[in-house]
Computed example of a mutant assay.
Amino acid sequence: MSLSSPLPPRRGLRAWLTSDTPASRFQARLGRYYATWRALSSNPLTLLGLAILLALVLVAAFAPWLAPFAPNDQDLANRLAPMGGLHPLGTDQLGRDILSRLLYGSRVTLAIIVLVAVISAPIGLAVGTIAGYFGGWVAAVLMRVTDIFMAFPRLILALAFVAVLGPGIDNAVIAIAITAWPPYARIARAETLTFRNADFVRASIVEGAGHWRILMTQIVPLCLGSMIVRVTLDMAGVILIAAGLGFLGLGAQPPTAEWGAMISTGRDYMLDQWWVAAMPGIAILLVSLAFNLLGDGLRDALDPRKRRS
């Protein structure tokens, strides 16, 4: 670490992080991270959502060690067994352990969430910032394309893309990502319109900075806060769309353990063996709720008007 970024003193670390006059960019950056964490940690519901998502990551990572059985092992003698004993959450119509399939299904859900966010968020950010910064015919073309995608319900549009691409997890991810980026583009464009005529942008232009450099070094970083909040809140909808595709047989294909497909196979037993469909439904509910709780907390923490000192 350079001399311009002094280490915090052994005492008074909190005061060093919350200093109104940071001595370096490093200290200022750590101070912003600390203020954001304080805002998040002061909200119990946000911490609950974060805990559920961390549990999802851990469960997905250690599923082979946590699951009592392999996800596709069949025990026909114990098919549709109730909860308890060797099968804490019961078994399905083929005698497969529901708990094991839930644990392995968390991997599919987490993979879909990460891939959709990685694909759709950069696309929406790029379209929105370019449209907002350059304006004119560039904005007209890009935003009309955005409006076309937003004119259709996301699930219907995803179904159309999957019908063209074919069933499967990979195609489901592509279809969901294609339908998820338009809201991000609108948010990025609105944020860019508030910054493009700011004094610091005009000063960069006077100093000879190019448009693309201004976009990448000044505009895009300022849009990241709103994008992170919107992506987090949208993940609940992504989970529901992925589960809907799996329910219709267009997502993960048998015998892959996927929560939406598990609900589909259990719908015929809802009256007598309710746990077959209820357990994956509860898992979807908890993860969706966790993303909403975390998104609400991030929205408050990243809003300078609500950030606590």
Rank of each mutant, 00 (worst) to 15 (best):
A180T: 15
A190W: 14
A209S: 15
G208I: 04
M216H: 06
L193H: 03
P183S: 06
G210T: 14
W181P: 03
R189D: 04
F200M: 08
V201K: 08
D199K: 08
W181K: 06
R196S: 01
T192C: 10
T194E: 09
A209C: 13
S204T: 09
L215I: 14
A180S: 15
P182S: 10
A190Q: 08
L215R: 07
T194K: 15
L215G: 01
W212F: 15
E191R: 13
P182M: 10
A180F: 04
T192G: 09
I187N: 00
F195P: 01
A185W: 13
I187W: 02
V206T: 14
E191G: 02
F200P: 12
A180L: 05
A203V: 11
M216T: 14
L215E: 02
H211I: 00
S204V: 03
A180Q: 10
D199Y: 08
R186L: 00
W212A: 11
M216L: 11
A203S: 10
A185P: 06
R189S: 03
G210D: 08
A188Q: 03
R189Q: 13
A190S: 15
R189H: 14
F195S: 02
V201F: 08
R196W: 04
A180R: 03
R202K: 11
T194P: 01
I214D: 06
V201W: 04
F200S: 05
Y184V: 04
G210C: 05
R189A: 08
L193N: 07
H211A: 11
A198C: 07
R189E: 10
P183F: 05
I205T: 11
A188N: 04
R189I: 05
H211D: 08
Y184M: 01
F200N: 08
G208Y: 07
E207Y: 10
A203W: 11
R196D: 03
R196V: 14
I178D: 02
V206D: 02
W181L: 02
A185T: 11
R186T: 13
A188Y: 07
V206A: 11
R202A: 11
R213D: 06
T194L: 12
R213P: 00
I178Q: 07
W212H: 02
A190E: 14
R213W: 09
R202H: 07
V201Y: 09
A190N: 15
L215N: 06
E191P: 00
V206W: 04
R213N: 07
H211V: 04
A185V: 12
R213T: 09
R186W: 00
A180K: 04
A180C: 01
V206E: 01
I205M: 11
E191W: 01
P183A: 01
G210S: 13
A188C: 02
I205R: 15
A209L: 14
T179E: 04
A198S: 13
V201I: 15
A209I: 14
G210V: 06
I178C: 12
A203C: 12
R213Q: 12
